[in-house]
Simulated assay, not measured.
Amino acid sequence: MRLQGKVALVTGAAGGIGLATAELFDREGAIVVASDIEPPPKPYPSSIERVHHDVTSEEQWATVVGAIVKKHGRLDVLINNAGIIAYEPLDKLEMKEWLQMIAVDQTGVFLGMREAVRVMRKQQSGSIVNISSIWGTAAVAGAHSYHAAKGAVRNMSKNAAMTYVADGIRVNSVHPGFIHTPLTDAQEPKLNEAVIAMTPMKRGGKPLEIAYGCLYLASDEASYVTGIELNIDGGYLAQ
């Protein structure tokens, strides 16, 4: 029960890393609000609260966080997980594709942190975990907008960590390597095989392996941890 009594909001919780994190937090005693623009493939346990949530909407962020505070009185943990991926190189990237990526993967994180910080400053406590990527640190050919957004999340997290450290708010980023999720399962197998081949452990990760990293950062066990990049990547970034 490492999160006993804590109120946690997990975005992008209909599948993959978000779903694994929401379910793990629930097992660890948290009051979990799971948000996504899509419903989960199967119902959540009755103890998890589901909310429809478009992370690109400023109004919906205010509504979702406001409802959590009204019902539970606080917000202790935010997991900014909702995201999309695309692989267009710079010269073939259309403006609408660029704007969509930035809206979901970067602006969604900004809006989430802003709403959470406004609550957590009043509490003088809280933990924010932003899901970046190995490609927020290292680069491969193509995927220009994804690299841009995830790289921004990396530094946005550090900025917020330094800005609000005196308010008892911890902000960290998690950088997954290749993880088997519905998002990656929908990709070309050859693309997935190429990333796994570049991973020293020679396998893809499981969503639960990322969820356990989020659990540590959300818990009081990480009370002296802020501004870090937690790489959970099978050794990819150690090369």
Rank of each mutant, 00 (worst) to 15 (best):
P189H: 12
H180Y: 05
P40Y: 12
S173K: 09
V109F: 13
L78H: 01
G234R: 00
L237V: 09
Q124R: 15
A160I: 00
S133G: 14
A103W: 00
L208I: 15
I196S: 05
A139N: 08
K190A: 15
F178M: 11
A67S: 14
A30C: 07
R114G: 05
E28Q: 13
Q124L: 12
P207S: 10
P45H: 07
A14T: 06
Y216V: 14
A166I: 11
L19N: 05
A238Y: 06
S145L: 00
V140D: 06
D91P: 04
V77G: 01
N130F: 01
V77T: 04
G205S: 07
V109D: 02
R27D: 11
K202G: 08
A197H: 10
P45K: 10
M113S: 07
K92F: 06
R154S: 13
T63N: 03
A34H: 00
G234Q: 06
G29K: 11
F178L: 07
M156D: 14
I131P: 02
A82F: 01
W98M: 03
V51F: 04
H53P: 01
R203K: 14
M113G: 08
G136F: 11
V10R: 02
T199M: 04
V109I: 09
D167V: 09
G136M: 08
V109C: 11
P176F: 09
I31C: 07
R121V: 15
N172W: 07
A152L: 06
E38P: 03
H147C: 10
P182E: 08
S35K: 08
V10G: 08
D167S: 14
A62Q: 14
L78D: 03
R114T: 08
L191D: 07
T226L: 04
S46L: 03
T56Q: 05
R2L: 15
A152N: 11
Q187L: 14
V77C: 00
I37S: 13
G18N: 06
E94Y: 13
V225M: 14
L237E: 07
P200L: 00
A138T: 08
F110D: 12
A139D: 08
Y212N: 09
I85E: 11
G18T: 14
G205T: 07
S57M: 07
L208S: 12
H175L: 14
Y164K: 12
Y87C: 05
V77E: 09
L237Y: 08
I79L: 14
E188F: 07
K6S: 03
L3A: 14
C214E: 00
Y44K: 01
M198P: 02
V32R: 01
W61M: 02
A8R: 10
Q123N: 05
R170S: 03
V153Y: 10
K92H: 15
P200I: 03
S173F: 07
P182K: 15
E115V: 09
K96S: 12
A152Q: 13
G112C: 00
T163I: 09
S132Q: 02
M101Y: 04
Q187K: 09
H144C: 13
E49F: 12
Q60G: 07
A34T: 02
R121D: 03
R118A: 09
A22H: 13
A67M: 04
L183D: 03
A186C: 06
L215M: 03
A160F: 09
E49D: 12
L24C: 11
P45R: 12
